[in-house]
Protein backbone atom coordinates (compact mmCIF):
# COMPACT_ATOMS: atom_id res chain seq x y z
CA UNK A 1 0.00 0.00 0.00
CA UNK A 2 2.69 2.52 0.97
CA UNK A 3 4.51 2.02 -2.29
CA UNK A 4 1.30 2.80 -4.09
CA UNK A 5 0.73 5.83 -1.92
CA UNK A 6 4.24 7.13 -2.31
CA UNK A 7 3.71 8.98 -5.62
CA UNK A 8 0.94 10.90 -3.94
CA UNK A 9 3.45 12.61 -1.71
CA UNK A 10 4.15 16.03 -3.11
CA UNK A 11 7.72 16.56 -4.28
CA UNK A 12 8.21 19.49 -1.97
CA UNK A 13 6.84 17.87 1.18
CA UNK A 14 9.23 17.40 4.05
CA UNK A 15 10.89 14.05 4.05
CA UNK A 16 11.05 13.46 7.84
CA UNK A 17 7.35 12.70 8.04
CA UNK A 18 6.58 10.56 5.03
CA UNK A 19 4.90 7.97 7.18
CA UNK A 20 2.11 10.26 8.41
CA UNK A 21 1.61 11.82 4.99
CA UNK A 22 1.28 8.48 3.41
CA UNK A 23 -1.02 7.29 6.18
CA UNK A 24 -3.45 10.15 5.65
CA UNK A 25 -3.21 9.61 1.90
CA UNK A 26 -4.02 6.00 2.65
CA UNK A 27 -7.05 6.99 4.61
CA UNK A 28 -8.40 9.37 1.99
CA UNK A 29 -7.68 6.79 -0.64
CA UNK A 30 -9.60 4.18 1.24
CA UNK A 31 -12.57 6.46 1.96
CA UNK A 32 -12.89 8.15 -1.39
CA UNK A 33 -13.74 5.07 -3.51
CA UNK A 34 -16.40 4.12 -0.99
CA UNK A 35 -17.80 7.61 -1.21
CA UNK A 36 -18.10 7.21 -4.98
CA UNK A 37 -19.71 3.82 -4.58
CA UNK A 38 -22.06 4.94 -1.83
CA UNK A 39 -25.09 5.90 -3.96
CA UNK A 40 -24.99 2.60 -5.77
CA UNK A 41 -24.43 0.57 -2.62
CA UNK A 42 -27.19 2.43 -0.86
CA UNK A 43 -29.61 1.67 -3.66
CA UNK A 44 -28.58 -1.98 -3.72
CA UNK A 45 -28.96 -2.18 0.04
CA UNK A 46 -32.36 -0.54 0.13
CA UNK A 47 -33.85 -2.02 -3.01
CA UNK A 48 -32.13 -5.38 -3.31
CA UNK A 49 -30.57 -6.67 -0.12
CA UNK A 50 -33.23 -5.57 2.33
CA UNK A 51 -36.13 -6.81 0.18
CA UNK A 52 -34.26 -10.06 -0.41
CA UNK A 53 -33.90 -10.50 3.30
CA UNK A 54 -37.51 -9.45 3.77
CA UNK A 55 -38.68 -11.99 1.23
CA UNK A 56 -36.70 -14.70 2.99
CA UNK A 57 -38.29 -13.85 6.31
CA UNK A 58 -41.69 -13.55 4.67
CA UNK A 59 -41.39 -16.96 3.07
CA UNK A 60 -41.34 -18.50 6.53
CA UNK A 61 -44.40 -16.60 7.65
CA UNK A 62 -48.04 -16.72 6.95
CA UNK A 63 -49.65 -13.39 6.29
CA UNK A 64 -53.31 -12.59 6.06
CA UNK A 65 -54.19 -9.03 5.36
CA UNK A 66 -52.34 -6.03 6.72
CA UNK A 67 -50.36 -6.33 9.91
CA UNK A 68 -50.83 -10.02 10.54
CA UNK A 69 -48.05 -12.53 10.20
CA UNK A 70 -47.02 -15.67 11.99
CA UNK A 71 -43.94 -17.81 11.75
CA UNK A 72 -44.76 -21.13 10.10
CA UNK A 73 -41.30 -22.48 9.34
CA UNK A 74 -41.03 -24.29 6.06
CA UNK A 75 -44.74 -24.95 5.82
CA UNK A 76 -45.11 -22.49 2.93
CA UNK A 77 -42.52 -24.40 0.94
CA UNK A 78 -44.15 -27.71 1.80
CA UNK A 79 -47.45 -26.20 0.72
CA UNK A 80 -46.01 -24.98 -2.57
CA UNK A 81 -44.41 -28.28 -3.43
CA UNK A 82 -47.58 -30.25 -2.70
CA UNK A 83 -49.84 -27.73 -4.42
CA UNK A 84 -51.19 -29.16 -7.68
CA UNK A 85 -51.77 -25.66 -9.00
CA UNK A 86 -48.16 -24.77 -8.47
CA UNK A 87 -47.21 -27.76 -10.55
CA UNK A 88 -49.73 -26.80 -13.21
CA UNK A 89 -48.13 -23.37 -13.27
CA UNK A 90 -44.69 -24.94 -13.31
CA UNK A 91 -45.60 -27.19 -16.21
CA UNK A 92 -47.10 -24.29 -18.19
CA UNK A 93 -44.09 -22.11 -17.53
CA UNK A 94 -41.77 -24.94 -18.47
CA UNK A 95 -43.59 -25.50 -21.75
CA UNK A 96 -43.42 -21.80 -22.45
CA UNK A 97 -39.72 -21.70 -21.62
CA UNK A 98 -39.03 -24.72 -23.74
CA UNK A 99 -40.96 -23.17 -26.60
CA UNK A 100 -39.16 -19.88 -26.26
CA UNK A 101 -35.74 -21.44 -26.07
CA UNK A 102 -36.24 -24.19 -28.65
CA UNK A 103 -38.19 -22.20 -31.21
CA UNK A 104 -37.18 -18.61 -30.70
CA UNK A 105 -33.44 -19.00 -30.31
CA UNK A 106 -32.80 -21.28 -33.28
CA UNK A 107 -34.92 -18.96 -35.37
CA UNK A 108 -33.01 -15.96 -34.07
CA UNK A 109 -29.79 -17.72 -34.97
CA UNK A 110 -31.11 -18.51 -38.45
CA UNK A 111 -32.02 -14.89 -39.07
CA UNK A 112 -28.69 -13.76 -37.68
CA UNK A 113 -26.87 -16.12 -40.02
CA UNK A 114 -28.94 -14.94 -42.96
CA UNK A 115 -28.17 -11.33 -42.16
CA UNK A 116 -24.54 -12.19 -41.61
CA UNK A 117 -24.15 -13.45 -45.17
CA UNK A 118 -21.85 -11.20 -47.15
CA UNK A 119 -23.54 -9.32 -49.92
CA UNK A 120 -27.00 -9.04 -48.34
CA UNK A 121 -28.46 -5.69 -49.19
CA UNK A 122 -30.37 -3.58 -46.69
CA UNK A 123 -28.82 -5.39 -43.73
CA UNK A 124 -29.37 -2.44 -41.42
CA UNK A 125 -32.97 -2.13 -42.55
CA UNK A 126 -33.78 -5.78 -41.86
CA UNK A 127 -31.96 -5.66 -38.57
CA UNK A 128 -34.04 -2.66 -37.53
CA UNK A 129 -37.26 -4.29 -38.71
CA UNK A 130 -36.59 -7.51 -36.85
CA UNK A 131 -35.34 -5.73 -33.77
CA UNK A 132 -38.08 -3.12 -33.53
CA UNK A 133 -40.78 -5.27 -31.84
CA UNK A 134 -38.70 -5.31 -28.68
CA UNK A 135 -39.22 -1.57 -28.49
CA UNK A 136 -42.96 -2.14 -28.21
CA UNK A 137 -44.11 -2.28 -24.61
CA UNK A 138 -45.49 -5.60 -23.48
CA UNK A 139 -48.88 -4.02 -22.83
CA UNK A 140 -49.17 -3.05 -26.47
CA UNK A 141 -47.91 -6.43 -27.58
CA UNK A 142 -50.70 -7.96 -25.54
CA UNK A 143 -53.26 -5.56 -27.00
CA UNK A 144 -52.10 -6.29 -30.53
CA UNK A 145 -52.09 -10.05 -30.11
CA UNK A 146 -55.36 -10.02 -28.21
CA UNK A 147 -56.98 -8.72 -31.36
CA UNK A 148 -54.94 -10.89 -33.70
CA UNK A 149 -55.70 -14.08 -31.81
CA UNK A 150 -59.46 -13.65 -31.57
CA UNK A 151 -61.64 -16.47 -32.73
CA UNK A 152 -63.53 -15.79 -35.98
CA UNK A 153 -62.60 -12.12 -36.18
CA UNK A 154 -58.90 -12.42 -35.40
CA UNK A 155 -56.52 -11.68 -38.23
CA UNK A 156 -54.51 -14.83 -37.62
CA UNK A 157 -57.47 -17.17 -37.89
CA UNK A 158 -58.77 -15.28 -40.90
CA UNK A 159 -55.37 -15.44 -42.56
CA UNK A 160 -54.95 -19.14 -41.87
CA UNK A 161 -58.45 -19.82 -43.11
CA UNK A 162 -57.60 -17.89 -46.24
CA UNK A 163 -54.54 -20.05 -46.81
CA UNK A 164 -55.93 -23.35 -45.60
CA UNK A 165 -59.62 -23.65 -46.43
CA UNK A 166 -60.01 -26.36 -43.81
CA UNK A 167 -58.79 -24.07 -41.03
CA UNK A 168 -61.31 -23.59 -38.21
CA UNK A 169 -61.82 -19.85 -37.77
CA UNK A 170 -62.97 -20.61 -34.26
CA UNK A 171 -59.49 -21.89 -33.37
CA UNK A 172 -59.17 -20.94 -29.73
CA UNK A 173 -55.72 -19.40 -29.56
CA UNK A 174 -56.45 -17.70 -26.30
CA UNK A 175 -58.21 -20.64 -24.68
CA UNK A 176 -57.01 -24.15 -25.44
CA UNK A 177 -53.80 -23.03 -27.14
CA UNK A 178 -52.81 -20.13 -24.97
CA UNK A 179 -49.24 -21.37 -24.52
CA UNK A 180 -48.80 -21.58 -28.28
CA UNK A 181 -50.19 -18.07 -28.57
CA UNK A 182 -47.82 -16.86 -25.85
CA UNK A 183 -44.85 -18.50 -27.51
CA UNK A 184 -45.76 -16.91 -30.85
CA UNK A 185 -46.30 -13.46 -29.38
CA UNK A 186 -43.04 -13.68 -27.46
CA UNK A 187 -41.34 -14.93 -30.59
CA UNK A 188 -42.50 -11.85 -32.41
CA UNK A 189 -41.37 -9.60 -29.63
CA UNK A 190 -37.99 -10.99 -28.70
CA UNK A 191 -36.70 -12.93 -31.70
CA UNK A 192 -35.03 -9.87 -33.19
CA UNK A 193 -33.53 -8.94 -29.86
CA UNK A 194 -31.85 -12.32 -29.54
CA UNK A 195 -30.92 -12.14 -33.19
CA UNK A 196 -28.84 -9.07 -32.47
CA UNK A 197 -26.93 -11.00 -29.80
CA UNK A 198 -26.27 -13.80 -32.23
CA UNK A 199 -25.32 -11.36 -34.96
CA UNK A 200 -22.71 -9.87 -32.68
CA UNK A 201 -21.45 -13.34 -31.82
CA UNK A 202 -21.30 -14.35 -35.47
CA UNK A 203 -19.16 -11.38 -36.24
CA UNK A 204 -16.62 -12.88 -33.86
CA UNK A 205 -16.40 -16.14 -35.76
CA UNK A 206 -12.84 -16.19 -37.14
CA UNK A 207 -13.10 -15.71 -40.89
CA UNK A 208 -10.05 -17.83 -41.63
CA UNK A 209 -11.52 -20.73 -39.72
CA UNK A 210 -14.49 -20.76 -42.03
CA UNK A 211 -12.26 -20.47 -45.04
CA UNK A 212 -10.00 -23.24 -43.82
CA UNK A 213 -13.04 -25.43 -43.34
CA UNK A 214 -14.28 -24.57 -46.81
CA UNK A 215 -10.94 -25.56 -48.29
CA UNK A 216 -10.90 -28.69 -46.19
CA UNK A 217 -14.08 -29.67 -47.92
CA UNK A 218 -16.42 -29.23 -44.97
CA UNK A 219 -20.06 -28.83 -46.01
CA UNK A 220 -22.39 -26.22 -44.55
CA UNK A 221 -23.41 -28.35 -41.60
CA UNK A 222 -19.85 -29.34 -40.69
CA UNK A 223 -18.75 -25.73 -40.90
CA UNK A 224 -21.66 -24.74 -38.68
CA UNK A 225 -20.87 -27.46 -36.17
CA UNK A 226 -17.11 -27.11 -36.03
CA UNK A 227 -16.61 -23.42 -36.67
CA UNK A 228 -19.72 -21.33 -36.05
CA UNK A 229 -21.20 -23.18 -33.12
CA UNK A 230 -18.04 -23.36 -30.97
CA UNK A 231 -17.38 -19.70 -31.64
CA UNK A 232 -20.84 -18.54 -30.63
CA UNK A 233 -21.27 -20.92 -27.71
CA UNK A 234 -20.26 -18.41 -25.02
CA UNK A 235 -22.79 -15.86 -26.26
CA UNK A 236 -25.25 -18.60 -27.10
CA UNK A 237 -25.30 -20.09 -23.64
CA UNK A 238 -25.67 -16.63 -22.18
CA UNK A 239 -28.63 -15.92 -24.43
CA UNK A 240 -30.15 -19.26 -23.49
CA UNK A 241 -29.79 -18.42 -19.81
CA UNK A 242 -31.30 -14.97 -20.31
CA UNK A 243 -34.19 -16.54 -22.20
CA UNK A 244 -34.78 -19.11 -19.52
CA UNK A 245 -34.74 -16.46 -16.81
CA UNK A 246 -37.03 -14.21 -18.83
CA UNK A 247 -39.37 -17.03 -19.75
CA UNK A 248 -39.62 -18.34 -16.23
CA UNK A 249 -40.76 -14.95 -15.10
CA UNK A 250 -43.40 -14.60 -17.78
CA UNK A 251 -46.40 -12.84 -16.31
CA UNK A 252 -47.48 -9.63 -18.01
CA UNK A 253 -48.26 -11.14 -21.37
CA UNK A 254 -50.59 -13.94 -20.19
CA UNK A 255 -52.04 -11.64 -17.53
CA UNK A 256 -52.98 -9.11 -20.17
CA UNK A 257 -53.91 -11.53 -22.94
CA UNK A 258 -56.19 -13.41 -20.57
CA UNK A 259 -57.42 -10.18 -19.03
CA UNK A 260 -56.37 -11.06 -15.54
CA UNK A 261 -57.61 -14.62 -15.58
CA UNK A 262 -55.49 -17.74 -15.78
CA UNK A 263 -57.15 -19.02 -18.90
CA UNK A 264 -59.19 -22.06 -19.68
CA UNK A 265 -58.54 -24.73 -17.07
CA UNK A 266 -55.51 -22.77 -15.85
CA UNK A 267 -53.78 -23.34 -19.16
CA UNK A 268 -52.45 -19.80 -18.93
CA UNK A 269 -51.37 -19.99 -15.30
CA UNK A 270 -47.66 -19.25 -14.97
CA UNK A 271 -45.53 -19.45 -11.85
CA UNK A 272 -45.35 -15.70 -11.43
CA UNK A 273 -49.03 -15.51 -12.26
CA UNK A 274 -49.68 -17.91 -9.41
CA UNK A 275 -47.40 -15.87 -7.20
CA UNK A 276 -49.49 -12.82 -8.03
CA UNK A 277 -52.72 -14.68 -7.42
CA UNK A 278 -51.74 -15.99 -4.00
CA UNK A 279 -49.78 -12.98 -2.82
CA UNK A 280 -51.65 -10.03 -4.19
CA UNK A 281 -55.12 -11.35 -4.82
CA UNK A 282 -55.47 -13.55 -1.74
CA UNK A 283 -53.11 -11.62 0.47
CA UNK A 284 -50.87 -14.55 1.41
CA UNK A 285 -47.55 -12.85 0.88
CA UNK A 286 -45.65 -15.61 2.69
CA UNK A 287 -46.86 -18.24 0.31
CA UNK A 288 -46.08 -15.97 -2.62
CA UNK A 289 -42.56 -15.44 -1.26
CA UNK A 290 -42.09 -19.19 -1.06
CA UNK A 291 -43.15 -19.45 -4.70
CA UNK A 292 -40.72 -16.67 -5.54
CA UNK A 293 -37.89 -18.47 -3.82
CA UNK A 294 -38.77 -21.66 -5.62
CA UNK A 295 -38.37 -19.86 -8.95
CA UNK A 296 -35.14 -18.34 -7.71
CA UNK A 297 -33.79 -21.79 -6.87
CA UNK A 298 -34.78 -23.20 -10.25
CA UNK A 299 -33.11 -20.28 -12.00
CA UNK A 300 -30.02 -20.57 -9.84
CA UNK A 301 -29.72 -24.19 -10.92
CA UNK A 302 -30.05 -23.09 -14.56
CA UNK A 303 -27.37 -20.45 -14.05
CA UNK A 304 -25.12 -23.05 -12.44
CA UNK A 305 -25.58 -25.36 -15.40
CA UNK A 306 -24.78 -22.52 -17.75
CA UNK A 307 -21.58 -21.81 -15.83
CA UNK A 308 -20.58 -25.44 -16.03
CA UNK A 309 -21.28 -25.47 -19.74
CA UNK A 310 -19.39 -22.30 -20.45
CA UNK A 311 -16.49 -23.53 -18.29
CA UNK A 312 -16.35 -26.44 -20.71
CA UNK A 313 -16.10 -24.11 -23.66
CA UNK A 314 -13.56 -21.95 -21.82
CA UNK A 315 -10.80 -24.06 -23.36
CA UNK A 316 -11.77 -23.01 -26.82
CA UNK A 317 -12.07 -19.40 -25.80
CA UNK A 318 -8.68 -19.67 -24.12
CA UNK A 319 -7.38 -20.69 -27.50
CA UNK A 320 -8.49 -17.46 -29.02
CA UNK A 321 -6.91 -15.41 -26.28
CA UNK A 322 -3.64 -17.28 -26.50
CA UNK A 323 -3.62 -16.80 -30.22
CA UNK A 324 -4.14 -13.10 -29.83
CA UNK A 325 -1.23 -13.02 -27.40
CA UNK A 326 0.90 -14.97 -29.81
CA UNK A 327 0.52 -12.31 -32.46
CA UNK A 328 2.60 -9.91 -30.40
Amino acid sequence: MSSLAAPATLPGSSSPAPASTSASADRSRSVFPWLLLAPFLLLVLVFTIVPLFGATVLSTQQTFGPGTSRFVGLSNFRGVLSDPLFWTAFKNTFVFTLGSVCVQLPLALCFAMLLNQPGIRGKTFFRLILFSPVLVGVVYVAMIFFVLFQKRTGLINQLLAGILPSWDVGFAWLDQYIMLALILATLWQYMGFNMVYFLAALQNVPKELNEAAKMDGANWWKRFRHVTLPAITPVGSFVVLLSIIGSFQVFELPFLLLQGSTGVDNKGLTIVGYLYQTGFQSGDLGYASAIGWTIAIVLAVCAGLQRLLSAGSEVSRGGKVARGGGAK
Binding site: E208, L209, E211, A212, A213, H226, P230, R323
Partner: peptide, 12 residues
Protein backbone atom coordinates in the same frame (compact mmCIF):
# COMPACT_ATOMS: atom_id res chain seq x y z
CA UNK B 1 -4.45 -26.90 -49.20
CA UNK B 2 -3.85 -23.66 -47.40
CA UNK B 3 -2.04 -22.70 -44.22
CA UNK B 4 -3.23 -19.51 -42.60
CA UNK B 5 -1.40 -16.83 -40.70
CA UNK B 6 -3.33 -17.47 -37.51
CA UNK B 7 -3.34 -21.24 -38.10
CA UNK B 8 -7.16 -21.47 -38.28
CA UNK B 9 -7.33 -24.54 -36.06
CA UNK B 10 -10.71 -25.77 -34.80
CA UNK B 11 -10.50 -24.78 -31.14
CA UNK B 12 -12.75 -27.48 -29.74
Amino acid sequence: AMVFQNYALYPH
